[in-house]
Amino acid sequence: MKSTWIIVLGIVVGAIVIGGQSFYPLLTSQNILNEPSGEVRLGDVYDEQLTTTVTITDADNKMPILRIMTDTDQITTDVKQKLSQMVKEANETLPAHEKMRLETTYFDTNVNIELTTEVTYHSQYQNKMKVTIDDIVLSHPADEQYHFAEATDMINTSAQKMDMLFHQQYSFFHKV
């Protein structure tokens, strides 16, 4: 009788161990980022923020013309506002017949436009973790007459793509 109880107890303990091993990955694998360097376990995600940095530099002397970092859904508005301010300031010194508008003003130098989009996570296991989901540099020669309005349209298109990518692959709040 004693050996029967030992066998039964062994079967129960074995079932618990085997069953527990099956459920362990389900319990501990929540909110894992797959990075090129490996997996990063976030645990419970408390906050996630999608930001984009736009940097426009003079390609010849590497001097920054504009640098803005803000929430991705706000980046186009902020860049447009800053470019409009630049046009307004330039117009203060121009005669009336030479005044510029945002829609017709263009970069008169070789420029590089860099767009970097990152997600910052605050989570159970990672206090503040930044993950770059896109980083592109576009070059535009001066003879191309790349208009400010074209730049803001390109930034808007990129921001929309990054927002969609974020919600599809990087957001833990919107997964069901």
Rank of each mutant, 00 (worst) to 15 (best):
V119A: 01
I133N: 05
Y121F: 06
V119N: 01
H140F: 15
E114H: 14
V119Y: 01
E118Y: 11
H147C: 06
E144I: 04
V137K: 14
Q124E: 10
Q126P: 02
H122F: 09
Q145L: 08
A149P: 09
H140L: 08
S123W: 04
E150C: 05
F148G: 01
N127P: 08
T116W: 12
D135T: 06
E150L: 10
T117P: 06
Q145F: 11
H140S: 13
V137F: 11
T152E: 03
N127L: 09
E118I: 07
D153M: 13
V119H: 06
T120Q: 11
V131E: 04
Q124F: 05
V119K: 03
A142L: 01
A142E: 05
I133E: 02
K130R: 09
M129F: 11
E118S: 14
A142T: 00
E118D: 13
T120M: 12
S139M: 03
I133P: 03
L138T: 11
T132P: 04
Q126G: 00
T120C: 07
D134W: 12
T120V: 09
D143P: 01
A149N: 15
V137M: 14
P141V: 01
H122R: 12
A142Y: 02
S123P: 07
Q126C: 01
T132G: 08
V119M: 09
H140Q: 15
E118R: 15
V131G: 04
T117K: 08
T116C: 05
D143C: 01
K130H: 13
Q126R: 07
P141W: 01
Q145E: 10
L115G: 10
Y121K: 02
T117A: 11
M129Q: 13
Y146N: 02
H140Y: 15
T152G: 06
Q126S: 10
Y146F: 12
M129C: 01
Q124I: 00
A151R: 00
Y146S: 01
N127S: 15
E118T: 06
H140G: 12
L115C: 10
A149V: 08
S123I: 03
Y121N: 03
F148L: 05
E118V: 06
L138P: 09
Y121W: 02
L138V: 10
A151G: 03
T132F: 08
Q124G: 00
Y146Q: 04
Y121I: 00
P141N: 04
T120L: 12
H140T: 09
A142H: 04
H147E: 12
T120H: 05
E118K: 14
T120D: 03
V119T: 02
E144R: 15
D153I: 03
H147M: 15
T117G: 07
E144M: 15
V131R: 13
E144P: 08
T152C: 10
N127G: 10
Q126Y: 04
S123N: 09
D153C: 00
A142S: 08
K128P: 00
H122N: 09
T132W: 07
K130L: 07
H140P: 08
D135A: 10
E118F: 10
I133D: 04
I136A: 10
V137Q: 14
T117N: 09
K130I: 00
T152Q: 06
E144S: 11
M129P: 02
I133W: 07
D134G: 12
T117I: 03
I133H: 05
V131K: 07
H122Q: 13
L138W: 14
E144Q: 15
S139G: 09
A149R: 13
T132R: 13
Q124L: 00
P141T: 06
V119W: 00
P141E: 02
K128T: 05
E144G: 07
